[in-house]
Amino acid sequence: MSSPSERLAQILTEGRFVAIRELGEECAAELHTHAKERYLALEATIPQFRSSMNRKLFELGPPVLAIYQALLHDLGVDREPALRLAEDMLLAFYRKQLNRSPLLGAAMDIVFRLKPARRLLMKSMLAGEPGGFRFDRASDAGALLAFDVRECPLVTFARRHGVPEVVPMICRLDDLKVKELHGIELHRTGTLGTGAEFCDFRYVMAKK
């Protein structure tokens, strides 16, 4: 499992062509430097989770926040263009990760299609830890897997640093990830990151 600092380096590398396209070579190099400086300033505030699930779900928060802060405060990019650029860099990294893991979709398919695997996944999610993600089982007879996220440390972390607007771009990665599944869709009406009371996840079989 990668650390947030390793994820920052990967996002900056995989998203470099996006930064050069939008900012030019010189400013893209400055972004690289300032994002690392911003991350170092954030590092002491990153929660130290024991659970591997919490660490995995949280790992993109600090690097995305550092890149966004660098764009806003060090390079003087306006809010909306900074959000778009940070998300485009994140997507470049995430798509490369998916391409490097061709078996990911197959493994996820097994988890979603086998009831014992879903039960084991749900059990691990419900265990939780203080300050981490809090999942509640949800009732939905038509769903393969149904749960609600009631507490999200990504939202807490971003609010603490005054930039809650970065969270939705991380939420949207769930929609990209589910495309790796075959015949399974994610139905979701809201997320904590966009101001909803909870994130409702309903994984269902796609209609033919």
Rank of each mutant, 00 (worst) to 15 (best):
Pro47Trp: 03
Glu26Ile: 11
Met108Gly: 13
Leu40Lys: 14
Val64Ile: 10
Leu103Arg: 11
Glu22His: 12
Leu126Arg: 13
Ala106Phe: 12
Arg100His: 13
Lys56Met: 15
Ala19Gly: 04
His34Arg: 14
Lys56Asn: 14
Ala146Glu: 00
Leu23Arg: 10
Glu22Ile: 01
Asn99Pro: 02
Leu145Arg: 00
Gly132Ser: 09
Ile20Met: 08
Gln48Tyr: 05
Gly131Ile: 06
Ala86Phe: 06
Val64Phe: 07
Leu65Glu: 04
Gln10Ala: 15
Asp140Gln: 08
Leu23Ser: 09
Ala35Leu: 02
Leu91Tyr: 11
Pro62Leu: 05
Gln10Lys: 11
Lys96Trp: 10
Leu71Gln: 04
Phe135Tyr: 15
Leu31Gly: 00
Leu90Thr: 07
Arg134Val: 15
Asp74Met: 06
Ala86Arg: 01
Ala141Asp: 15
Gly132Asp: 03
Leu65Pro: 02
Pro47Ile: 07
Ala146Pro: 02
Leu83Gln: 09
Leu60Gln: 06
Ala19Pro: 01
Leu60Thr: 06
Arg16Gln: 11
Ala141Ser: 15
Ile110Ser: 12
Ile11Phe: 05
Leu83Cys: 06
Glu87Thr: 08
Ala28Asn: 08
Arg134Cys: 13
Leu31Arg: 00
Leu114Phe: 13
Leu75Phe: 08
Arg55Ile: 02
Arg79Tyr: 04
Leu23Pro: 02
Glu30Tyr: 09
Gln69Glu: 12
Ala143Asp: 07
Thr33Leu: 13
Ala82Pro: 00
Ala146Lys: 00
Asn54Tyr: 04
Ala28Met: 05
Thr33Pro: 01
Leu72Pro: 01
Tyr39Phe: 15
Asp74Ile: 03
Pro116Val: 11
Glu22Thr: 07
Ile20Glu: 15
Gly15Lys: 00
Val18Asp: 02
Ala143Lys: 06
Gly128His: 10
Leu120Arg: 12
Ala66Leu: 07
Cys27Leu: 11
Gly15Leu: 02
Ile11Met: 07
Leu42Met: 09
Leu65Lys: 03
Arg137Asn: 11
Leu71Ala: 05
Leu31Lys: 01
Leu144Ile: 09
Phe147His: 05
Leu114Tyr: 13
Glu26Asp: 11
Asp109Ala: 06
His73Gly: 10
Asn54Val: 08
